[in-house]
Design a protein around this nucleic acid. Structure first.
Lengths: 348, 348
DNA sequence: CCGGCCCAGGAGAGCGCTCTCCGAGAGCCA
DNA sequence: TGGCTCTCGGAGAGCGCTCTCCTGGGCCGG
């Protein structure tokens, strides 16, 4: 059995020996702190280069209790269907990509790393909290979609710095970022009302997601202000396919619809296709408004009039908020609400 | 007893004291190793529960030199346009979501964590290698799109276990996973040829990506075998919009095209829209074949005939390969090539 | 009945770093 | 010139864990 001695990677000690100084001095130079003689700094730096030294993160964080990374936790309800043989469809939703982009934009310049985690079961959520408490990360951003998700509470209790991607379902001392969903939906309502739509319906998201509820409520309220007492709705699940199905349902019951609000762009896109299949002109016979202003919105036929959420900005703010909490553990929980805007394209 | 000012989180020592055993014994119980008396195990376990102990990862990996996490590095060429104000569009590509899903499916059961990293500049790539050498992760999966990306080489040289998402541009001792791009493109060619298309064109991906080249070459070769000496092509960038533009270019020069192969589904979708806008029937006047079999393929009008890549499987295999390399540092570099298949839907 | 063996569990040496504490020398003012 | 401050750099104590080595007692065979 040939046991080859592992080429041990150089340590501070090694660099110190080469540079002819103490470990402390090397450490000072590497961390750029305090007053070290210019010349000595150079000596140390070349010793670092010579030995190919890189600091050992484990040793470092053992002392500093910092890791320089944060987690992005995607907490979803459990669901595995034939169409979803693998994990949550979140990852494939354009929303997720924009979110990650926004977060990275903030994290990268500060050299903070991102740990991506996924929990679907309650068991996984408990394990996750234990895991996070082991000190793998300095803080957590939680993307939680479902209303009764216990994770925000668990994490709040753990004392780990955390920021939530939406208003928590029940009040708790945790910072969060959110868009004003109701106001956004109201924008859609105003738009349809302004176009003179009389028989308006809506495709909502899953009713167990707070965002879906808020959009539905906001839309109905605003339409009520315009005298529309009853707005029929069909529930989708934020996929294009579910949008198609929902339109079919809606048309079966209310064939003379002339305005439609879908709670996200993917479903709006599905609606557009379903309407097209039936030879119903958009926006001629039915005006359609979406929500999100995803990249898909521009690419539809006709291009989608939709409610814009500044997701990248929101994600960036979420990251900033988390970093602030990590920096100052005493910081009080803060909320940042973003105002959506209407982007008028061809569909309404 | 010394009074503790800070609520220091419990250590092994604390648990040991509560359980009335030595640190070693607690460690043994926690790591489930060796023979510890049943009864003692119970004592320890309840002491753990009582103190709320969780092991400190930094201390652990300082000794074991293992972190229990791996990195997924997305290495892209630098590109920021008006449409892409944030980071790479990879994240929003459905391809990426499926990849992450496949990887998670493999990693989660083994309790390995995923660090998500992004590099766009050469400087970032060098920093990244240094960073990874600090021992943040046990291994790396590299999603590299561009031919001249130096990252695979840098990582290979660093000695860190690594797996690449495609065949390396120039031979190097690194394990990789890939789909047989040429064979896939040939499948598309066979399909169009079988439908009797005579004037076939193709929309390629960016020519600096090996996958694009291989698909183009494979397609042209297979068409040549059917007697088609010249296949005009227009270059896109894998976005839907670029697919639309490419079709416009092609039609301007070759108005009588009757078959079209797009190097991915997003571009095929763009092509479908552009053809529809011009009143050109699909598949009646032009048959269209895509590549990837992304979720978008099912949702088009008409649904897209496309070349299926088992991306989730490939991603899972990539993860497995990496874990194998981490387990056995002497393992030789291995390649796993997956065979694409044709999925016939409505567009051809 | 004794010697050797086996096995459970304790002791303690690090892993590689940071950071506090100190001491040595330099500079400064009276 | 003496005493004080100030700066730079070294010494060394941990951080919380794993893992090897070692001890002591029970057991078995001769």
């Amino acid at each position: 059995m040939i046991e080859q001695p592992a080429p041990r990677s150089p340590t501070l000690e090694d660099v110190a020996r080469v540079a002819g100084v103490s470990r402390s001095t090397v450490s000072r130079v590497i961390n750029g702190v305090r007053n070290v003689d210019r010349e000595l700094q150079e000596t140390v730096r070349s010793a670092v280069a010579e030995t190919g030294y890189v600091p050992n993160q484990a040793a470092r964080s053992l002392v500093t209790k910092r890791t320089g990374s944060v987690a992005l936790v995607v907490s979803e309800a459990e669901h595995r269907t034939f169409d979803d043989p693998f994990l949550g469809r979140v990852f494939t939703d354009p929303f997720f990509g924009r979110l990650v982009s926004g977060i990275f934009g903030e994290l990268r310049p500060r050299r903070v790393n991102l740990m991506l985690m996924l929990t679907e079961t309650d068991e996984a959520r408990n394990q996750l909290v234990d895991y996070l408490r082991q000190g793998h990360v300095d803080g957590v951003m939680i993307i939680s979609t479902h209303a009764d998700d216990p994770l925000p509470r668990l994490l709040t209790e753990s004392g780990l710095p955390a920021v939530l991607s939406r208003r928590p379902s029940r009040p708790m001392p945790i910072s969060y970022v959110d868009a004003d969903q109701q106001a956004g939906a109201a924008l859609a309502a105003e738009c349809l009302a302004a176009r003179g739509c009389k028989r308006v319906a809506t495709i909502s998201g899953p009713m167990d997601m707070p965002a879906s509820r808020e959009r539905l409520d906001g839309f109905r309220e605003a339409m009520a202000r315009h005298g529309h007492a009853f707005i029929p709705s069909a529930e989708g699940n934020f996929t294009q396919e579910s949008g198609e199905r929902a339109v079919a349902e809606l048309l079966a019951q209310y064939p003379d619809i002339d305005g439609l609000f879908a709670a996200n762009d993917l479903m709006a896109q599905g609606a557009l296709l379903a309407l097209h299949d039936r030879g119903i002109a958009v926006p001629g016979r039915v005006a359609v408004v979406g929500f999100d202003d995803s990249s898909a919105a521009k690419a539809c036929r006709p291009p989608l009039t939709t409610v814009h959420q500044p997701i990248e900005d929101m994600a960036a703010e979420m990251a900033r908020l988390l970093l602030a909490h990590i920096e100052d553990r005493q910081l009080r929980a803060t909320a940042r609400i973003f105002e959506p805007t209407l982007v008028v394209r061809g569909s309404a």
